[in-house]
Design a protein around this nucleic acid. Sequence first.
DNA 1: GAGCACTGC
Length: 971
Amino acid sequence: MDASQVRNVGRMLDSLDERDYASKGTKRPEHRAGASYQPEPDDDLSDEWDKRISSIVKKEFEDDDNSDVAGSSSGGAGDSFSNPDAWIQDNTQKRKISAGQEQEKRQRSDAFAQRIDNMKESDFKQAYMANVHGNQMRDASGLSALKRDQMGLVRKEAVDEKLYEDMMQQQNCPKYQKMLEARKKLPSYKMRDEIVDAVRDNQVVVISGETGCGKTTQVAQFLLEDAVADGQGSTCSIVCTQPRRISAISVAQRVADERGENLGKSVGYQIRLEATHPRPEGSILFCTTGIVLQWLQSDPLLSKVSHLVLDEIHERDMLSDFIIAIAKDLIKVRSDLKVILMSATLNAELFSEYFGGCPMLHIPGFTFPVKEFYLEDVIEMTRFKFEDEREVPIWVRKSNKHKDNEFEGMIAPYVRNLERSGKYSCHTLDELYKSTSEKLNLDLVLELLRSINRKEPGAVLVFLPGWADISKLHSLIQGDRSFSRSSHLVIPLHSLMPSVNQREVFNRPPPGVRKIVLATNIAETSITIDDIVYVINAGRIKMKNYDKEANLVTLLPEWVTLANARQRRGRAGRVQEGVCYHLYSRAREQLLDDYPLPEIQRTRLEEIILHVKILRLGSAKPFLAKLMMPPDPNVVDKSLEMLQAINALDESENLTPLGFHLARLPVDPLTGRMLLMAAIFSCVGPILTIASALSFKDPFSVPLGKERIVDEIKKKMSRGTKSDHLMLVNVYDGWEDAWRHREAREYCWDNFLSSAVLEQLRNMRRQFMGLLYEHKFVNSKDPQAAEANRNSDNIALVRAIITSGLYPNVARVLPQRGRPNPHKPRSIRTQYERRVSLHPKSVNEKEREYESPWLMYREKIKSSKVYIHDSSMVPNYPLLFFGRKLNYVDGVINVDDFVRVRCSRHVAHLVQSLRTQLDELLEYKISHPGVTRWNKSSKEGALLHTIVDLISSEKISSSQDNYDYYDDGDD
DNA sequence: GAGCACTGC
């Protein structure tokens, strides 16, 4: 802050308590719902808030000369100079003085009541109170406390008749008849009566079956046809969930075809931002699991659903597991609701047991037989020779010690057995005795591909762990003369490559050409290639995991599970008999786990906890403990702590008003907070883009071999901002611009962008803006609305809003030691990791000069190193205004014991005063949603103007002086 | 110097 800024801020702060409002002391009109709402001037500042601000400002300026701003002399630095996060502090203080638990409980509910009392009457207050009270009741008395306030499924005889006649007519139509012939060939069709009877006689049924049995397309149809034939069509409304958007659409289309209809009659689908709804009665809706989760917010009993079919639940994704637990409670209240759980055969019992041993039906699958070979067979076949163990450096051998034990204990004895059997050659046995035979070896894959080359025609699918291996194997094949371009079509397949959206991978190649697909586990479930005959299972899979000890997300290759191996094998037998090569021995197979850990045990739980809260399912821990395979309670605690730290939950685990907003936004809590702040600070445009890209995916699509070029494009698009997030804003704005000039296609092509992703981002921006409008933070649904964008061109402010969203994900670029070296990456650390690296895809990875040492990031993942995947350089003020707890000691402002900024006591004092008031204002705005008014004569306007002016005036280069002194660099 | 895969009224 320079001298004139200090004067201005001081004047502004002084004026806050001198200002008198015409409306002061008079009762103000209440907020009204609906689009016509126009806020009265100063409507958002209650008398009480007014008084509070005044007293704080007054007190601090009176005490200016004799108070210790640093607060360090009293030892309670945090108390006198801290973020007045009123709720947390209220509760903590009350906790300190309360003696018994009962008293504490009363105190807490007093604090809660106080908080509610302080809120002005509004639609928001009503909705908020209803939620929190509902949750507290649910805690005590369970779901049955919910009253069924509307009957969703009322029988209408006229409709029943009409549906019946329609069906009769439909069944006589030749198109339907023809499709029926095909349906009758499916294994599931032969079990039609059993399925219908089981569902009729039981509330919950598990149906298991392998791919090709037709359960996904048939079961819902059987149930619908039975209901209509029975004259009950009007009360039959079937919802069938799918884990993926694409399968929801394609299954719906397929079923409509089978019925000789277009989508929108008896069959429809709904996914995020896209739907073709079927008629309301006598119908089937295919939707993603997330859609049902969102319905539950407004209709906790799913009162308009007669049959809930949960498909593909063996995949154990988090949302399926969560909805299964909700369904288990739901059936107690909805005795008329039928739940059908559909899974692969392997773990069907688990689901049945969870529902008290409900009946299970098994549908045999229909696939062609697949012959399986293991590593020993592949070596025998190819005469492949592994690297000698002696060639492996000693330190690598040592670091693999425990693996060696597994090898010595299980693999070696197995090979000795093989030796006795005499089935394999000495060469093979020698190779198997090498522990290097257990490493992923791309030369072996290449050798195997060569030998497949000599076999009958048929496409090959190779399962590899990730991008690097796909890339290496691709190069090996291209450089090998036995794979001529004219007779081989090699297609890499990875979610970040453009090939996933191209037809080529599905097409049958011309005669004489062999298709070889190099894929990740994307080809296990998401992408199905029909003409595969040979599968190579390299045996490894990358999975995201949460390491709770290190509090780190990891992405590391692991052995596949038997379930993965089975699924991979199945990919070979879709059109004819197939062959599957597993690149591990039969002994290793014995050591593989049966299934992957369910997703809920591998991730942090912040979002799912907010779902528990918004769905009024009571306390997080007891509810999550009811899941089929509950998450680790310590991880629940960690996630609860995080939600309390960002002030989304209070000490009693109630949603705060902020938490209530965050839980209703379809994004993770940090992104949600960024959106709310963007609305309050009127810079929605860029933040809508950033939030969309963070919660969906970045729009770049990188062909193999073009990595460098794409890196350069990103760097250029970042225009020197040193921010991946602002780079995305430029990319998106450039696309919108190109769109207006009808050049979007060229723009995407030239810049390696996916237009499908950009279109989804555009829709998500609209959706987010719509939600901010519904929640009354902006007064237009249009992402371009002038009022909500008055500060969108202020890059410094946008950086601050990024900070407010992503905090506490902040890293520090350490000062360089000695002479600057442009080739050496700068050392970076976070509060808890001494050393992290910028991911090479980040525009900052090659950056050596940082005008400010602070980088905000969204994702930090441990793979080969601990990588920060995305980053934005931000200056000091955003951290002072949007960090958590401030503290001033010895000429340094300290934010949460990590961020430190040198400044004079006087400036520190001003910052603290501003910060105190900003927090009060934000708390008020969050609990009294309304459009920000920037009129400087309003208190809100005066304060926000001052803060925005300060943030935008900070010369980013000057902050260099503020951190060079701070030399705890430990690189 | 590197990115398993999904999803949201």
